[in-house]
């Protein structure tokens, strides 16, 4: 090999001032998107690390938390007034705070989801075209009313009190449901949620599929991150969006191929360890006194909220 070393490897590369390009680099949105994907999956949705904090909710048995989740989401759906929804929001806020979760990050995520999937979707219903009622904020004045298909378009278009109440109610319901769900997910390791679901007789094969999918998301995120770093380490300038799109498409195909071979390997590993269609997961431990007392407390609060 010694006599094959290419001559260019013996030359000293250019100094910084000879490098040619000038100016400041702005990474393309696709490039930034690839980089943030892995971080978003691991920290945003899989919540690595949050469940290890020593707060109130983290100490509870996952069965209590899963029952709490279902019970309170039902209560949130049953309430038809804004005031009880606000009381539920306050109660859940106290639970989040007592669990030592980063409040700003937590509620930023909830607010973002509520705005996009709640407020933006139902906001048009606040106008008197959809929800007739007492006009509180006129927006457009027409020369005369119109009839369009099944809609009556009044002369004065604007927000109605009933419409705004409806939007607030739906947004509060969505926010409360999300807060309760995220509180449980943030404070419980995933494998313990899965075990808690056994209590509700969810088929174990189904639970195993969820567990494997969850594990795959981690592997997927790490692979995406690795590919992003490998590319970043060899990029010396700005990449055009069309080039980035071609690369992303190629990587998606590569990931698909890799996924196929990976799940075949996983299945073989399961077979090698005795898997024969029937799935058996390990049992969950006994409830403690704290779990029982907390369960009773949630039951009483729930009954009070239902009575309100």
């Amino acid at each position: 090999m010694r006599n094959k070393i290419p001559g260019f490897l013996l030359c000293t590369p250019a100094q910084a001032h000879d490098a040619g390009e000038r100016g400041t680099l702005r990474p393309s949105y696709i490039e930034k998107g690839i980089g943030h994907l892995s971080e978003m999956i691991t920290t945003g949705y899989l919540n690595v690390g949050q469940e290890s904090e020593k707060g109130f909710f983290q100490k509870l048995d996952p069965r209590v938390k899963v029952i709490f989740l279902i019970f309170f989401v039902v209560i949130v759906s049953l309430k038809t007034d804004i005031f009880p929804e606000a009381v539920i929001a306050l109660f859940v806020f106290l639970l989040v705070a007592s669990s030592r979760i980063n409040l700003a990050q937590f509620y930023k995520k909830i607010a973002g989801l509520t705005f996009v999937f709640g407020f933006l979707v139902v906001f048009p219903s606040a106008f008197n075209i959809v929800t007739p009622g007492e006009l509180i904020l006129p927006v457009i004045h027409l020369s005369h009313p119109y009839e369009f298909l099944i809609y009556h378009i009044p002369e004065e278009i604007g927000l109605t009190r009933q419409g705004v109440d409806g939007v607030m109610m739906l947004c509060l319901r969505m926010m409360n449901s999300l807060t309760i769900s995220f509180l449980v997910i943030y404070t419980t390791p995933f494998h313990r949620i899965i075990k808690a679901l056994q209590v509700f007789r969810v088929p174990q094969a189904f639970l195993l599929v969820i567990t494997l999918s969850y594990k795959y998301i981690f592997i997927f995120a790490k692979t995406v991150e690795g590919m992003y770093f490998a590319r970043k380490s060899r990029l010396v300038g700005m990449v055009r969006d069309d080039e980035a799109r071609i690369w992303v498409a190629g990587r998606i195909a590569h990931m698909f191929r890799k996924s196929m071979s990976r799940y075949e390997e996983v299945f073989r590993a399961m077979v090698a360890r005795g898997f024969a269609e029937e799935v058996r997961l390990s049992d969950i431990g006994e409830l403690t006194t704290t779990d029982r007392l907390s369960g009773c407390f949630f039951l009483l609060v729930g009954i009070f909220l239902l009575w309100m």
Binding site: A19, G20, R22, G23, T24, L25, S233, V236, G237
Partner: peptide
């Protein structure tokens, strides 16, 4: 900085 990025990555 494009100049430094190109130099560093190369």
């Amino acid at each position: 900085d494009r100049t430094f990025l190109k130099y560093f990555r190369s």
